[in-house]
């Protein structure tokens, strides 16, 4: 039965006051030295920069990725694209969906809107073949990023910016092998993610020793830590832990310490905590795909293509990485990482 009006008004007023008070603490002003980046959702557009830029905002490029909402890696890719769009004086729209069927709809929508170029990540190439084919048919230049290096030519894309997921894994596997490790676990934090499976497969390929995957859920980092702890307790012979996300690396580090294990820890992708851990010698290495470049370069390439008919890449892939970050070189890139530009 509905609540009596007076009681209800009091409750809502109290709730509104509390929410108002607590939120004002963090929305009134931006601290000194901080910027307020726009966006953060799965759909956004970066406005063109001043009129002195070359293309003067007359071109619009659509970036359509397979990112899940809130993925820190893709947030950096998006930032790279937005910054490049502002610099080049063009407009970039960003949309994402991890479901290939939905992603193909987003590509089709971009074609219908008459965009001047499309940037797409192909985690599931077959699911996107038809939509990308339509773009190529419509003479819209397409650049693939991050995933799809094996098939971008077949689909008619002008180039691919990124790296093979398998190559990133292979690079990590080589690091563990060089350190003389013999038993590795690869921590997959998103069930059914093809790219993560490929990374683990690549690592297993070059590692040479025994390797197995461990499935966790990034939505519960405390459980991630507990699961890695449990694995290390169950099998003390594990001497290498390979993670695929910065936050998961942090959780795995605590798990290794908690389990009293001597396992070597290495991961893919960087954040401020991982940088600190590398400096402290607690994380041995991180394979950086340089996601900022995966966002930045395609915008530059497409702008050059549509404004000056330049075909950058010559049909070959442009590798954004991998860069292996260790204690030896971490200082050189720490500042860029803290600014989210790596």
């Amino acid at each position: 039965m509905p609540l009596e009006g007076e009681t209800m008004r009091k409750i809502l007023a109290a709730a509104a006051c509390v929410v108002g008070l607590t939120m004002t603490a963090c929305t009134n002003e931006v601290p000194a030295g901080k910027t307020t980046p726009s966006g953060g959702a799965d759909q956004s557009a970066s406005a063109p920069a001043g009129s002195d830029d070359k293309a003067d905002g007359k071109y619009t490029f659509a970036m359509v990725t397979h990112s899940s909402a809130g993925d820190a890696f893709w947030d950096i890719v998006k930032s790279g694209g937005e910054d490049a769009a502002a610099k080049m004086g063009v407009t970039m729209t960003y949309q994402a969906d991890p479901d290939p069927a939905q992603q193909s709809i987003l590509i089709t929508n971009a074609i219908a809107q008459g965009v001047d170029g499309i940037i797409v990540s192909m985690a599931n190439p077959d699911g996107l073949k038809e939509a990308i084919g339509k773009a190529v048919e419509a003479k819209i230049p397409v650049i693939t990023i991050n995933s799809g290096i094996e098939r971008y030519k077949e689909f008619g894309a002008m180039t691919h910016v990124g790296q093979s997921e398998e190559l990133a894994g292979e690079t990590a596997g080589e690091q563990f092998k060089a350190a003389g490790k013999s038993k590795m676990i690869c921590v997959i934090h998103e069930a059914g993610n093809i790219g993560q499976e490929q990374r683990c497969a690549g690592a297993a390929k070059t590692f040479g020793g025994s390797a197995e995957n461990l499935q966790v859920d990034i939505a519960d980092l405390a459980a991630v830590q507990n699961t890695v702890t449990a694995k290390l307790q169950a099998d003390p012979s594990i001497d290498a832990v390979f993670t695929l996300n910065g936050s998961v690396t942090t959780a795995a580090l605590k798990a290794i310490e908690g389990a009293g294990s001597e396992a070597m820890l290495g991961g893919i992708d960087l954040d401020a905590d991982v940088v600190t851990a590398i400096k402290d010698g607690k994380v041995s290495f991180a394979v950086d795909q340089q996601p900022y470049a995966q966002g930045w370069l395609p915008i530059v390439f497409l702008t050059q293509k549509v404004s000056d008919a330049m075909d950058t890449g010559g049909g070959q892939p442009v590798y954004s990485g991998p860069l292996v970050v260790t204690k030896d070189n971490v200082e050189q890139i720490a500042d860029a990482i803290s600014r989210g530009k790596h």
């Binding site: 963090c26 929305t27 931006v30 901080k34 910027t35 307020t36 980046p37 726009s38 966006g39 953060g40 959702a41 909402a69 809130g70 993925d71 820190a72 947030d75 910065g246 936050s247 942090t250 954040d271 401020a272 905590d273 989210g340």
Partner: peptide, 14 residues
């Protein structure tokens, strides 16, 4: 997602 990104510039707090 949106507020964390807006106020910190990232989607994961470190």
């Amino acid at each position: 997602l949106a507020v964390t990104k807006l106020l910190t510039g990232t989607v994961a707090l470190q």
